[in-house]
């Protein structure tokens, strides 16, 4: 039997060790740079991998540091309004960008559409090979249609608009599928739900399809490009040379190539 004192000193030693380890991690983890050389990028979580890759490329080219914060656009907007700690904001939703702009936190003249996406219909890849021929919404036999919530989630709103445009005799394809819908909170959840059901199709963004290419089959593609991510410099970002450079770089051809690899489209004519 060990004495209490002995085990207590062990706990103490472990604690000291952890703190020391942590301190060394902090020391090596981030070389402190002056604030003017660190760009704080707040980006919608769906962009996380792509924006990170653009950021590392920018860091390598310029020597500046990029720091990220990834969350839902609503959360980021609330954070920017509560405390001005962001330099660049990429929102998946123009309403939240407007919310930040209305509160005077971004430089309005820099606000613009930066990234687009396209809706696609997908299904789980069947072991027996893929279907051929034109996908026919009106003859859809699948038991479930997984989409983002058409009332509240952008990807669901776009999906509804897409299907409403497709005519099936008297009614629209939307009317034809409306009793088979499984609405969800976001495109990633819709993707996961579609993959979990053997007899379902899902409507997600092209970038979601690209991320799961091995498991899903592309059934149909919308002709309309939707889901424009908006970008802007914040008021603090506007005063920072490095942030301006990053914002321009994020819209360059180099960044465009990275984005396209993740299944996004760049917005032309800016």
């Amino acid at each position: 039997m060990k004495s209490a004192g002995e085990s207590r000193s062990k706990v103490g030693a472990a604690l000291v060790y952890s703190v020391a380890l942590y301190a060394s991690f902090l020391a090596t983890g981030c070389q402190e740079k002056p604030d003017t050389e660190i760009i704080r990028v707040y980006a919608a979580a769906s962009l996380s991998d792509a924006v990170r890759e653009i950021g590392s490329r920018f860091e390598a080219d310029t020597g500046y540091s990029v720091e990220y914060n990834f969350a839902g656009s609503n959360t980021l907007a609330q954070q920017i309004v509560s405390a001005s700690r962001a330099d660049v904001f990429f929102s998946a939703d123009s309403e939240w960008m407007a919310y930040v702009e209305d509160r005077g936190k971004i430089a309005s003249e820099t606000r613009q559409n930066v990234i687009a996406n396209r809706l696609v219909a997908i299904g789980r890849r069947q072991p027996g090979g893929s279907s051929t021929g034109k996908f026919d919404w009106c003859a859809l036999r699948n038991a479930h249609v997984c989409i983002g919530d058409p009332e509240s989630v952008p990807v669901g709103k776009y999906a509804k608009a897409w299907l409403e445009e497709i005519e099936c005799g008297e009614a629209s394809a939307w009317a034809a599928v409306s009793d088979r819908l499984i609405p969800s909170s976001d495109a990633r959840t819709t993707l996961a739900q579609t993959l979990s059901l053997s007899d379902a199709i899902g409507i997600v963004y092209y970038s979601d399809y690209v991320s799961a290419r091995d498991e899903v089959e592309l059934l149909d593609e919308s002709a309309v490009v939707v889901a424009r991510y908006e970008g802007a410099l914040t008021r603090t970002g506007l005063e920072k040379l490095a942030a301006g450079k990053f914002f321009v770089f994020a819209q360059s051809d180099v960044a465009g190539d990275i984005l396209r690899r993740y299944g996004f489209e760049t917005v032309s004519g800016n």
Binding site: A45, S46, L47, S48, D49, A50, F70, D186, R188, S207, D208, V210, S211, A212, Y262
Partner: peptide, 8 residues
Amino acid sequence: FSAQQGGN
């Protein structure tokens, strides 16, 4: 969350 939302 980031990995899941980013499709990784």
